[in-house]
Design a protein around this nucleic acid. Sequence first.
DNA 1: CCCTAGCGGTGCT
DNA 2: AGCACCGCTAGGG
Length: 174
Amino acid sequence: MFMNDRTQTFTLPIRTADGEFLARYSAEGLCALDFPSGPKAPASTPDPNPAPVPPHVRLWHALTVKALGRALAGQAAGRLPPLDLSCGTKFQQTVWQALSQITCGRNSSYSQVAHAIGRPKAVRAVGAACGANPIPVLVPCHRVLASDQGLGGFSAGLDWKRTLLAREGVRLAA
DNA sequence: CCCTAGCGGTGCT
DNA sequence: AGCACCGCTAGGG
């Protein structure tokens, strides 16, 4: 083989009441989920020359659509497509893995996650890893709060974080 | 309340 | 190697 085995990825839109998300798929599974871009998020420009979407990707996408719909409604996401987290470092993947185990309606803190992965002092690094999470909502980085019960940060904007938490019924201090 | 020091991972030089 | 970021935290005014 030459080195031209381009790892083809597919980007598929998901229309929701909150705007149009974009799901990206690698050969291994869902590798990214993007929040609606603009404030009003007009429909994405259709690809003028779209590559055909393979059946297995369609299947993954169906799972993603369903899971996202439930997650946005504040319910457990249910079955997910395979996740491709290989874009992250070992540390980040460990963190993202830990995030996935925080169940709907519950929450954690950066410090707790740091302890959970056996690096109790890597608290700040955990925060940075959360910010690098390529699959927000489904990998629920929004459930991680500051230890003083503050909101902490959220790369897509704190409004999203507040909204997601509110919908799953998480009660915030203050 | 604010301020600070200390922390660990990551990316850039 | 060094350095400057960071979705942080605990401790001290």
